Amino acid sequence: MAQDPEELFEVDSDVPDLSGAVLLHHFDGFMDAGSAGSTLVEHLLSASEHRVIARFDVDELIDYRARRPMMTYATDSWESYDAPELVVHLLYDAIGTPFLLMTGPEPDRRWEAVAAAVRALVERWGVRLTVGFHGIPMGVPHTRKLSVISHATRPELVKEKSPFNRVQVPGNLAALLELRLGEAGHDAMGFVAYVPHYLAQGTYPGASVGLLEAMTTSTGLTIHPAGLQEAANRTNAEITRQVAESAEVAQVVEALERQYDAFTSAEENLLIADGEPVPSADELGDELERFLAEQQRDH
């Protein structure tokens, strides 16, 4: 097993000057409610010409038996193998500014070595800011403005703070990478979209739009939402249609709205009558999630 973290990757011989560039990253495998992060990755890659300039040795990092890559069998022989890739893409925004995007499966092993390897690339290329993004499920209604919170290695980088003061969560490579880069004196941050938890298992492009807006504001990159916004509009229209078809579900959404408004305004007594029973956000979300799932099976 390689000991030097830089032995984990190979860099293209033709890399332009990237001094001051931004490195975005998203790893498949950790929480990503509504596919918020992965959908944004697809949008970035489809909206700009791109090429791979660094490739990591996945044989050192992936447990194939834990998540087996797909293979295609045709008639009497194996036709293809969908090999996993952990790579860094070079892209250009709408006005020609270069930026980087690291994507692929979250490694199963050697997290510290991968973090050190990414740090080596950051220092080699003169990256000024590293940014991660994903979605998490929350007890919020889809009818309210989508929230995107941020965290960073310096307070000055944080745009919208989390309501949580201190909490322990399962570790993930994106978080460790941000931590280690900060310890080494590099600027790094992450964005998290609050996805209505009854929509967390599907694809919710509205969360991806929110992540894109937050990311472009902080990085200065010019990336148009175009197709992503259109997908969000279609999804929102479909959700509205499904909810409108059931008075019972509409009442559930209204109750969740009132609970959300009570929380954000801290004036619950003005929104909920004394003694009025209100289900918890989890109960409301579970009921609505069941309804939407049934509707999707019927169409």
Rank of each mutant, 00 (worst) to 15 (best):
P155R: 07
A244D: 13
T222L: 14
S208L: 02
S162P: 04
G227M: 04
P205W: 01
T217Q: 15
A115I: 09
P105C: 11
A237T: 04
P163C: 01
Y204L: 00
A152E: 06
A175L: 10
G185Y: 04
A152G: 10
L176P: 05
R110V: 00
T217G: 15
L129C: 06
R128A: 12
L176N: 12
E156S: 12
R234S: 00
M189F: 03
A184M: 01
G210P: 09
H134R: 05
M189D: 02
N165E: 15
I239R: 00
L221K: 07
L176F: 12
G135H: 00
I136A: 10
R110K: 10
E248C: 08
L177T: 07
R110D: 10
M138V: 10
I239D: 03
L157W: 02
G220Y: 03
K145T: 12
E123W: 08
L212K: 09
R128G: 14
L177K: 09
N233C: 07
T219S: 11
N236L: 09
G126S: 06
Y194L: 05
F191H: 11
K145Q: 15
A174P: 04
S208C: 06
A120V: 01
G135Q: 09
E123K: 11
A188F: 00
A200V: 03
G126L: 06
A184N: 02
K145N: 15
T219H: 07
Q229K: 13
F164S: 14
G220A: 07
R166S: 15
L228V: 04
L228N: 08
G206Q: 01
V195H: 03
T240H: 12
A115S: 12
F191E: 00
A115F: 08
G210R: 01
N165G: 15
D187K: 05
P196A: 01
S218E: 15
L199V: 00
Q201M: 09
S162D: 08
S150H: 02
G220E: 03
I223S: 07
L181D: 05
R144Y: 00
R109P: 00
T235N: 13
T143S: 14
E156G: 14
T222G: 04
G220R: 08
P196T: 02
V114Y: 15
D108E: 01
V158F: 02
R110A: 07
L179D: 09
M138I: 06
I149R: 13
L228K: 03
E106I: 04
G126E: 04
L228E: 10
K145C: 07
H186V: 13
R124D: 10
A115D: 09
R110L: 08
T130C: 01
S218G: 13
R180S: 08
P225V: 10
P170V: 05
F133Q: 04
Q242S: 07
